[in-house]
């Protein structure tokens, strides 16, 4: 008998969708900051000004959301836990990781059936959270430069010195493209697993529920 599991709790879903919105907005405005493709006809306009304002506004929203999700890693259920993102520390996790990896590379036939993240996806999310944190730190380090000695500069200014202003920008810019690559992969994999697992992978991130056949676990 199929069972309905409540997998993605409300905070996980809210954070997920705020992150999606923020990453998209940050990428659009960030790309614009990098190569402003609109030329304002009047000096009284504020095109770049608004783009930067939006970038910074979504940057704060994004930071709060990522921080909330990280806190929830210590409060939420075991699918939301930080432990879910390092599946390969257990022997079973390693096995499932290999099984899943072989499925993706057409060298194995079976999907690992999971209630929460599959081990390959979980590993990808670990990398994504690392990139999120990198964007936040590098972003606020650059942001703080408008006010040397201010809060953000005091906190993160050492990074500018260590990495160099230009490299930091290049990295911040490059990570946007890594995230773009991830999003393509992520939506594709979500679609594929929705198709093959038949357990509501996609609807789960909206509703929180997944439909699991306990026999398959």
């Amino acid at each position: 008998m199929l069972k309905i599991y409540y997998v993605w709790e409300l905070p996980v879903r809210i954070c997920h969708w705020i992150n999606v919105l923020s990453v998209i907005m940050l990428s659009i405005t960030g790309f614009f900051i990098g190569s402003p493709f609109i030329t304002a006809p009047e000096t009284s306009m504020y095109v770049m000004g608004w783009m930067r304002f939006l970038h910074f506004a979504f940057a704060y929203l994004f930071t709060v959301s990522v921080a909330a999700r990280i806190i929830w890693m210590f409060i939420g259920n075991h699918h939301a836990s930080w432990k879910a993102f390092i599946p390969w520390v257990t022997a079973e996790g390693r096995q499932n990781f290999i099984k899943m990896f072989r499925y993706y590379t057409f060298t194995g036939k079976k999907i690992t059936y999971e209630v929460g993240h599959n081990p390959v996806a979980a590993t990808a999310y670990l990398g994504i959270f690392a990139l999120f944190i990198f964007q936040i730190i590098s972003g606020f380090a650059m942001y703080g430069q408008f006010e040397p000695g201010g809060f953000w500069n005091g906190l993160l200014g050492g990074i500018n010195v260590l990495v160099g202003n230009q490299w930091l920008r290049l990295l911040h810019h490059g990570v946007m493209w890594l995230l773009a690559g991830f999003i393509i992969n992520h939506i594709y994999s979500g679609w594929l697993m929705d198709l093959k697992m038949r357990n509501g992978t996609m609807s789960g991130i909206f509703s929180g529920y997944r439909y699991i056949e306990p026999e398959d676990l």
Binding site: I111, H173, W177
Partner: peptide, 30 residues
């Protein structure tokens, strides 16, 4: 940006091909 667009395009193509191949796969669905 050129490198980034290349990376994104390569990812899209790779998963596109993967997707087509996966659709023709038989007997792997749960």
């Amino acid at each position: 940006d050129k490198i980034g667009i290349g990376l994104a395009a390569a990812t899209a193509v790779a998963f596109g091909v993967h997707g087509v191949a996966s659709c023709f796969r038989k007997g792997d669905a749960m």
